[in-house]
């Protein structure tokens, strides 16, 4: 049996219907990470047994669906912290139910506590606002005439 992709029938393609379901599950996590996601439900919707689903997901993304969900939540938390959102708001905004599990997981993945990360990012933001050219390679700044205006 061959599988059709974009109207192409080509035996060199793997089982694209499996890929479609796994990518859908991944995108579901990407979009709904802030909600209480029941990963069993995702497996059901994708029409897989839970075990099979976790195995296939891990083959592609090198993380179990649960690990992937956590990494997306932490990633989004970092984004919010970078924009200056307080830790207690970030925690619930990205789908965690307790500050302690949020802090613990954050520290394990990001290597620093959420409040430490927030403070460091605030400092960086201030520096960037005060001297934006420090973040731009000199050649670009010079070529665009930014150096002359601001520094000389």
């Amino acid at each position: 049996m061959t599988f059709t992709i974009l109207g192409m029938e080509d035996p060199q393609y793997p089982k694209m219907y499996l890929y479609r379901r796994l990518v859908q599950a991944k995108l579901f996590i990407d979009t709904h990470y802030a909600e209480p996601i029941d990963l069993d439900n995702i497996a059901d919707e994708a029409n897989f047994s839970k075990f099979h689903f976790i195995k296939l997901f891990k083959n592609i993304y090198h993380k179990t669906p649960h690990q992937y969900l956590i990494s997306v939540r932490i990633e989004k938390a970092m984004e919010l912290l970078r924009s200056g959102t307080p830790v207690s708001i970030v925690c619930y905004a990205v789908g965690f139910e307790s500050l302690s599990s949020f802090s613990g997981l954050f520290k394990r993945i990001a290597g620093t506590t959420p409040s430490g990360y927030l403070a460091r990012q605030q400092k960086l933001r201030t520096q960037r606002a005060e001297s934006p050219l420090a973040f731009i390679p000199g050649c670009f700044a010079e070529k665009n005439g930014w150096l002359k205006k601001t520094q000389f």
Partner: peptide, 24 residues
């Protein structure tokens, strides 16, 4: 990428225009 079929499928779903589909 580690898995071109998964990456291709995701980008395609997101509306990225491909001029060549994954080809060996």
């Amino acid at each position: 990428c580690r898995d071109i079929f998964a990456t291709y499928e995701e980008l395609r779903v997101k509306g990225v225009e491909f001029t060549k589909v994954p080809t060996k």
